[in-house]
Nucleic acid binder design. Sequence first.
DNA 1: GTTTGTATTAACAAAATTGTTAGTCGATAT
DNA 2: ATATCGACTAACAATTTTGTTAATACAAAC
Lengths: 204, 204
Amino acid sequence: MKPKDTEAEILKAAEQEFMLRGFDGAKTASIARAAGVTHAMLHYYFRTKEQLFERILTDKMNLMGRSVLTAFGNPGLPLLERLKDGISRHFDFLVENPDLPRFIINEVFSRPERYEIMRKGVSRIIDKLMQNVQQELDSMAAQDEIVPVDVRMLMLDVVSLNIFPFITYPMIKPLLGDIAADRERFFEQRKAENIEVIMRRIKK
Amino acid sequence: MKPKDTEAEILKAAEQEFMLRGFDGAKTASIARAAGVTHAMLHYYFRTKEQLFERILTDKMNLMGRSVLTAFGNPGLPLLERLKDGISRHFDFLVENPDLPRFIINEVFSRPERYEIMRKGVSRIIDKLMQNVQQELDSMAAQDEIVPVDVRMLMLDVVSLNIFPFITYPMIKPLLGDIAADRERFFEQRKAENIEVIMRRIKK
DNA sequence: GTTTGTATTAACAAAATTGTTAGTCGATAT
DNA sequence: ATATCGACTAACAATTTTGTTAATACAAAC
């Protein structure tokens, strides 16, 4: 008589399994085992593997989309501070969700139509945010305080620098040696580096 | 009769299928169909799906590893020119192999032990290359021509900026609108942007 | 011309994976 | 008390996927 409980258990297990192995690599039996129920329950609550997956993917896409907005949508600060703060907050979000980008990138790649889910949710708001920042960039550039720059290119710089170390950490760790051995310390350094790179990109 | 022929056909088909769908998503029947043979042939030549996959993965990892070396291992130029040239050549390599990084990142993530294949091949040579560049960076910094910088951080900046647009193109294309609509032109702009970012990172 | 060896196929086998169903159990409402 | 209803299980079914094998074809070697 505790339906919410098992349903939540399945969702939790499915999230882990799908994030770790992707849609094709995840097995319903494995999800059921991790949730501590028979795999029939999974069909009872979600009909098919596909539907269970869509549920997880939608959640994760919304999380990913909102992360950019909440990181950079911090009004009241002067532009450069707001940028620094945004990079830092976006990076911190990735520390808490290190596997999220790789998961989404893969699932969108293997079925691009899935991206519509996300685009509809955040595209408009991001457009608005970008337009605002572009205006501020332009006015600062007009006053010779920074160099002129396209906000879309700048934001792509930011997310490239922020996300890439997380999706490649298993590979770069052995390559970089001692600098990457201590994971937490390494990511602290990367955050500082990324802010430095972006500030230098736009400062006179 | 013509053994090389069918074996090569299978390898070609397997490469496409594995690169597109990954190990879990790829099906041996689909590979065989694309190669124009029965799926028994695939086992005849390679015993198992796993062994066929290892063959492809090893090739791709060597390709990926060497790409960094050949791009930046261009002696005779002054450091800044060599860096620009390296970024450009590495980027051009990605234009020719846009799906390669995503494929390798995924397969290494899902089974990190696979990374040993690559590490053994290129790790030493990359270490050497990095040490050389670090020395040049240090001597230029000592003469106040550039700011001091750790080569490992700088190279991670470079590959982050270069690779990320390729692995996320299906996602960023709808987000960036007109700027990304023309794929070729977009990547031209990105290459210029990446060189600009890195130069600004180290210049006084 | 027979033997030998390799390439190939069709059919089969085994395992894994997803999905279904009939029926049980227990709480709640009537 | 019993009828009802949602949660649940075990067993089964269907399909997909990987791997095997016996038989065939055919060229080259002897």
